[in-house]
Design a protein around this nucleic acid. Sequence first.
RNA 1: GGCCCCAUAGUUCAAGGGAUAGAAUGGAAGUUUCCUAAACUUUAGAUCCAGGUUCGAGUCCUGGUGGGGCUACCA
Length: 637
Amino acid sequence: MHVKFIELNYLCIHNLNSIMEQKIRECCVDAVKELFGEKIAPELIGFEKTKKEIEGDFTVVVFPLVRYSRKSPEQTATEIGDYLIKNLPGISSFGVIKGFLNLVMTESFWFDFLYTEFGDPSFGVFPARNDKPVVLEYSSPNTNKPLHLGHIRNNLLGYSISLILEANGFDVHKVNLVNDRGIHICKSLVAYMKWGKGETPESSGMKGDHLVGSYYVLFEKHYREEIQSLTGKGMTEDEAAGAADLIGEAQEVLRQWEAKDPDILHLWRTMNDWAYQGFDTTYKQLGVEFDKVYYESDTYLLGKQLVQEGLESGILYSKADGSIWIDLQEEGLDEKLLLRTDGTSVYMTQDLGTAEQRFETYHPSRMIYVVGNEQLYHFDVLKKVLKKLGNPASETLFHLSYGMVELPEGKMKSREGKVIDADDLMDEMVQTAEETTLELGKVDDFSAEKSAALFYMIGMGALKYFILKIDPKRNMLFDPKESIDFNGNTGPFIQYTHARIQSLLKKAKETGSWMLDAGPAKRETRNAKSESSILKPESSTLEPRPSTLIPSEREILRLLYQYPTVVKQAGEELSPALIANYVYELVKEYNQFYQEVPVLREEDPKKLRFRLALSAFTGSVIRKGMALLGIAVPDRM
RNA sequence: GGCCCCAUAGUUCAAGGGAUAGAAUGGAAGUUUCCUAAACUUUAGAUCCAGGUUCGAGUCCUGGUGGGGCUACCA
């Protein structure tokens, strides 16, 4: 099914069990030794999520142990359970169903957990590793096309993964490599020179990247027409494509560009600047950022040196026409061109160069490339070429290949105009958020500014969550109708729950028995100091412990306890989807609790305060988790 | 043609080799003198086919069927 991320072992996150699970595991190993006289590997002790309808907080799978106990699964589980109760504090009882040992933790275990962790800003944020950095490339746009839905997935994934890795203590460098040169860029230049009439973003009122993109489209339109008229005169499609005057002009412009023709360079810079300004706006709206932006026009010559060295050492070979190749047949691939007959570099040459450059600049433990799965072959080749050349960058290179975004009517095809534009999409989402919110009459007392901020938060939350909740590796279907839905498993649903919690806390504060320190909600992965919702009861009962925990409270605590482990796992698998699904589960559970259990209306002050603390902690984890997805949550909506 | 990926309710997604395969949406039926109904409850509904490995398979292996991607001196 899915490719396991074995290659990611370098991350050394590995231990994907919670602290309690680790303790249980160790104790189980002791139990097996004590009871059955066998020393077993800790990995043999597996955990399973405790099913909801079964009582228990942790579940040990004992099937693998029966060969050591030589007893029935039930008997084995029972004996180990007895041993655990005697030897591991915090376990109050256990139940055995088949080969599953369901451990029930004491209530004080859960209270201790709640009160030690919920005010701790670093909950779910792991300390910095004194390790080599990670370089993460994402976005990588093309200056002749505005960003579309596919880029949105790329950008959201890349940015979220950077946050997740940071939460796991990694030093992450986010880089962007802009494709700003090549024959396709020259097409836009040609079109502008022919038909542009000096149009600018200001004069046309168009966003820069869209303006540039429109000339690319214009070129393609005329080019197709020319090809059509040539095929009408008896040429084949291929002949016509090569013989058309327009493509000739574009090729000429490329030659001039490479020869540093001042006029061409000037126009090229002008149009690229328009595109960059447009991209910046889109990135800002998306909420993504980079530590460093590379331009292919600066890097495209890199790699030639590597190829030259490879040729000299005999690893590469040249053909009669002067082109340079690598033979990867032993590696199960093909022969691959690395330098053209005319000595110019191809995509691969350039990527070899940037890989080395990056490696030398950062000395990273890993270089992650967030690039669509249509380039699996390219990265396979890249890694193998580097390896064959004996370049250490090869070992650190990892292609995070994500699936394509498809539309209900099929694939997006930019040439046919079948694309969803990033800016349009974001605008629509925000607008829908506005309409829905106004319809529900939620913000009648909001200022215009506050409302606008909320609509943006909700619209973008919906979009981001819709995309990030899906396993990155999988192709996904983007149905605009569904994406704009704010009910069910959606971003706004989660935001709404957070808002309700904040509303509870605010009211609790107003009643006077609670003090709430509301700090600014910042990027918590980076700046763990800013924790809002620290609850300070005025009474001497700092840690109210009601006599019993009801099932929904226990379930919420159980989920909260899992959060750091989920962050780890998401870091290991480079999957924001794990965070998204976790937060959803937590929110669903909380909503049930909210619906069925009184909080402010509770008369027992111990229960009331405990539930407020539980709510505050839940709210904080919702916010942290969503922050890792790049999604903000409101206090009111 | 060769190589790679995918296949789970009508639909879109979950499920570390482990319990009765979970959600959402859509369908049906309910919940508001009460902390925000963008919520909650109940209900019907699924592992493409055929073999194999295993105490145990949606998950691993083989073969089929159906979809997608790659296979440029494009990037």
